[in-house]
C-alpha cells in the first residue's frame, strides 16, 4: 500500500468533484467508488455564497480533500492559490498545477519545479501535476515533493495513457516514489493499465462526472484499479512475439 505523505488509502482512486449533473450524484459517486480523497478548487465567491454549500457537502462526505491550483499559469499565482487553499481547507496538501500551454493544458514544468520548491519549503505536501519526464521528476523530488503525478493524456481528453513507455520508465526510474497517473483517463481499462504497471493511484474527474451514470462509472473505476493493483502484485508475464502452447505437447494422441 503506497503512502502519500503518511496517508495510506485502501482505495487509491483520487476523484475530482467538478462537472457532475448534481451535488447528489457527486455524493453518490464518492460513496459507491469508496474513494477516500477528492480534489477541490478555489474560485471567486459569489454574493450568493455558492462555495459555502459545496463545502458543506464535501465535509458531510467525510473524505480527505486535495485542493488544486487549477488554471494557474505562473509561480506567483500557484503559490498564492496554495496559501489560500491551506487556510480555507485546513490541509497542507496541494495538487500543484502550473499550466504552460492552453490547448493541451500541459504543465509548465520549469515553473512547476520552482513553485514546488517554494511550497515544500513552506511546509506544504505537494502533489505535482507533471509530465512523464524523468529529469523533471528528479527535480521535483529534489524540490521536496514526495509524490509525482504524471499525466496520462491532456486533462479531460479521455485518451488514456498516451505514452505507456514513458510512464513505465518513470515507474522503473523511481521504484520507491508514490506515483499517481493524473489526467487524461477515459476508461476503467486505462486506470487498470496504469495500475498493472505498478502505479500507486489514479486521479480522474471527467471520465466519471461526464459518464451517463457517474456513480456506476465511479464504481467501475474502483474495481479496475483494484484489479490492476492486484495484477501488478501478482507479477504479470512478459509479452512475447510467437505463440507458446499452454496445453502440454507431450502425450498428445497421434491422430493424423
Amino acid at each position: 500500500m503506497a503512502s502519500f505523505y503518511g496517508f495510506e488509502p485502501q482505495n487509491p482512486l483520487f476523484l475530482g468533484t467538478a462537472q457532475y449533473p448534481s451535488p447528489a450524484i457527486l455524493a453518490e459517486a464518492v460513496k459507491r467508488s469508496g474513494t477516500e480523497v477528492v480534489t477541490v478548487s478555489l474560485r471567486r465567491e459569489s454574493s450568493g455564497g455558492a462555495g459555502q454549500a459545496f463545502w458543506a457537502l464535501i465535509r458531510e462526505l467525510g473524505v480527505k480533500v486535495l485542493p488544486n491550483t487549477a488554471g494557474c499559469h505562473t509561480v506567483k499565482e500557484a503559490v498564492t492559490t496554495a496559501q489560500m487553499a491551506r487556510e480555507v481547507f485546513g490541509t497542507d496538501w496541494i495538487k500543484l498545477e502550473v499550466i504552460g500551454e492552453d490547448d493541451t493544458l500541459q504543465p509548465d514544468v520549469i515553473a512547476l519545479v520552482e513553485a514546488a520548491r517554494i511550497l515544500a519549503d513552506d511546509g506544504f505536501k505537494v502533489f505535482p501535476y507533471t509530465t512523464e519526464d524523468l529529469v523533471v521528476g528528479g527535480r521535483l523530488l529534489d524540490a521536496g515533493c514526495e509524490v509525482l503525478m504524471p499525466w496520462g493524456a491532456p486533462i479531460g481528453s479521455g485518451r488514456g495513457l498516451n505514452n505507456p513507455y514513458g510512464l513505465r520508465s518513470l515507474r522503473q526510474h523511481f521504484p520507491d516514489v508514490p506515483l499517481v497517473v493524473d489526467a487524461g483517463i477515459g476508461l476503467p481499462s486505462h486506470a487498470a493499465q496504469a495500475m498493472e504497471m505498478g502505479y500507486d493511484g489514479i486521479l480522474l474527474n471527467t471520465a466519471v462526472a461526464k459518464a451517463g451514470d457517474p456513480a456506476a462509472m465511479a464504481e467501475a473505476f474502483a474495481l479496475a484499479i483494484r484489479a490492476g493493483r492486484q495484477a501488478f502484485a501478482a507479477q504479470p508475464i512478459n509479452a512475447r512475439d510467437m505463440a507458446a502452447p499452454s496445453t502440454p505437447v507431450m502425450g498428445k494422441a497421434f491422430l493424423a
Binding site: 478555489l42 465567491e45 462555495g51
Partner: peptide
C-alpha cells in the same frame, strides 16, 4: 495572500485588487 488573522490590520487603498475565494468543485 492575506491570512484571516491579518485582515483587521490590512489597510486598503483606492484601486486595490481584492480577491475573495471560496471552496469550489475541482478536478
Amino acid at each position: 495572500f492575506v491570512p484571516a488573522r491579518k485582515r483587521a490590520e490590512t489597510h486598503l487603498s483606492e484601486g486595490d485588487r481584492i480577491e475573495i475565494v471560496a471552496p469550489m468543485q475541482g478536478g
